[in-house]
């Protein structure tokens, strides 16, 4: 039985302290109700636990965390998964700006749209590869400075029909990692020097694997998603600014 808590009257530092205490005691599943603007929930928590959040968590949900699986029934504000290390955030709604900043591992699945600067500075090493999947559309600077990891942008569940799939400066300065986009993006929207490529067999395998998990999370039909072609964006060099300096 998951432990149910109504946190509406609590300050975030109390909530985290309570969670830590229960985790210490061996509790592994939580349901948090009354979430509204609570910052830093699960920040820095290192444990294999599961949590369901009802409401709108505040800044930096799951920042630096290692392990927790958080499912949010609602939207998340800015900074979700900030420098997250391992674990998973599933959002049954939209997300604010700077999701997965400098993410090092784990997964973030967003059903709907995301804001600006999502997945910037993502990193990876060997088989530790963070993944962000966005069901809706993304703002500018998606994957800026990306050094590793995978971003998948579907553009399907958006509340902004008038907006492009991804904003301007997509992948600008990226020097590692891959961004997959379902459908097409204007080349002028890409960061300097970047080009869209068609997928190869390896890509398709990766994509299917991650999207399958995504579909399971939200009860979606994978074949529906795969109906349209994807493009991928990868760095043209791992040193996009190598020529910037006069030595």
């Amino acid at each position: 039985m998951p432990l149910e808590l109504d946190i509406s009257h609590l300050h975030y530092s109390q909530v985290n302290k309570i969670l830590r205490d229960y985790i210490e005691k061996g509790e592994r599943e939580f349901i948090l109700r009354g979430v509204n603007g609570h910052r830093y929930l699960f920040a820095g928590i290192s444990a294999e636990i599961k949590a369901q959040l009802y409401g709108t968590p505040g800044l930096d949900l799951g920042a630096f965390m290692r392990g927790p699986e958080i499912r949010v029934f609602g939207n998340v504000q800015d900074g979700a998964g900030n420098t997250m290390d391992e674990g998973k955030i599933v959002v049954h709604g939209m997300a604010g700006d700077v999701v997965g900043y400098a993410m090092r591992g784990g997964k973030i699945h967003i059903y709907g749209d995301v804001g600006y600067r999502v997945g910037i500075h993502m990193k990876a090493y060997m088989d530790k590869v963070p993944v962000i999947i966005i069901g809706g559309k993304a703002g500018d600077f998606l994957g800026e400075y990306m050094a590793g990891g995978i971003i998948i942008l579907l553009g399907m569940h958006s509340i902004y029909p008038e907006r492009p799939l991804a904003g301007l400066f997509l992948g600008t300065g990226m020097h590692g990692g891959t961004i997959y986009v379902r459908g097409k993006v204007k080349e002028s929207y890409l960061g300097l020097g970047l080009k869209p490529y068609a997928l190869d067999g390896e890509d398709e395998k990766i994509l299917e694997k991650h999207l399958k998990e995504y579909c399971d999370d939200f009860g979606l039909d994978l074949s529906e998603i795969l109906k349209e072609d994807f493009i991928k964006i990868i760095p043209y060099t791992h040193r996009p600014y190598g020529k910037l300096y006069a030595y």
Partner: peptide
């Protein structure tokens, strides 16, 4: 800025 009283209650 965080009043210590916040830490007292559970």
């Amino acid at each position: 800025y965080i009043p210590p009283s916040l830490f007292s209650g559970k």
